[in-house]
């Protein structure tokens, strides 16, 4: 008998008493009517608590702010679907590297890249969570992981208050990364400190009019 057949057989015999489970009560909050200003405040509060850098700006200010965030960087990687206009404020000192299908950067190249700029799919204000779901303006997972500095664009129109409100907006079967602040650990005395293997600097640009 295969292991699968045996395990499934064990499950059947374990449940021989035919337990009846109740319907799942879903009385928790599924929607919210929080206004935009409050949503912004809430998300800013959470991200600052996680020690992320946060700016609330207009779409026209993106190039200026991206350039300011990458002031010390020597190179930046961006996904092929990103609006390259966002990088138009970068000086010549910052080498721009595109990561595109058929022209992927190697892990070693990513490791030598100072920063990454991506957009994001949806953000949850209550928990301070930015979700990337692999759209072309966010790219594959490695590019937002290996460089030590992540500049992430969050369109204000993509902010929701509650996690259940974010779920329908996500592409389910593409790989997802939920990001709540820069990398951190609570492994020493259960106190949180920021900065381990993932990007140690997370700058979030929350953008009106995108």
């Amino acid at each position: 008998m295969s292991a699968k057949d045996e395990i499934l057989g064990r499950i059947r015999s374990a449940l021989a008493d035919a337990p009846v489970a109740q319907e799942v009560p879903r009385e928790y909050r599924k929607t919210s009517d929080m206004g935009e200003a409050e949503l912004i405040d809430l998300l800013v509060d959470r991200l600052v608590d996680y020690k992320a850098g946060v700016d609330v700006i207009d779409a026209a200010q993106i190039p200026e702010y991206v350039a300011a965030k990458l002031a010390g960087a020597s190179s930046v990687v961006y996904p092929h679907g990103l609006d390259t206009g966002w990088l138009s404020g970068l000086g010549e000192k910052v080498e721009q590297r595109i990561d595109a299908p058929g022209a992927r950067l190697s892990i070693a190249e990513l490791d030598e890249t100072s920063a990454v700029v991506t957009s994001s799919a949806v953000s949850v204000a209550e928990s301070g969570t930015i979700i990337l779901d692999g759209e072309p303006n966010q790219g594959r997972r490695a590019i937002s992981l290996v460089p030590d500095h992540h500049v992430c664009i969050v369109p204000i129109s993509s902010i929701v208050r509650l996690l259940p409100e974010a779920m329908p907006r996500l592409a389910i079967t593409r790989p997802q990364t939920w990001i709540s602040g820069p990398s951190a650990t609570s492994d020493i005395e259960l106190e949180r400190v920021e900065g381990v293997h993932g990007p140690r600097t997370l700058d979030v640009l929350m953008v009106r009019g995108l």
């Binding site: 959470r46 949850v124 301070g128 969570t129 990364t177 939920w178 709540s180 820069p182 993932g198």
Partner: peptide, 8 residues
Amino acid sequence: RMNPYTSL
């Protein structure tokens, strides 16, 4: 409120 990273 949320862990820094979740991968799916």
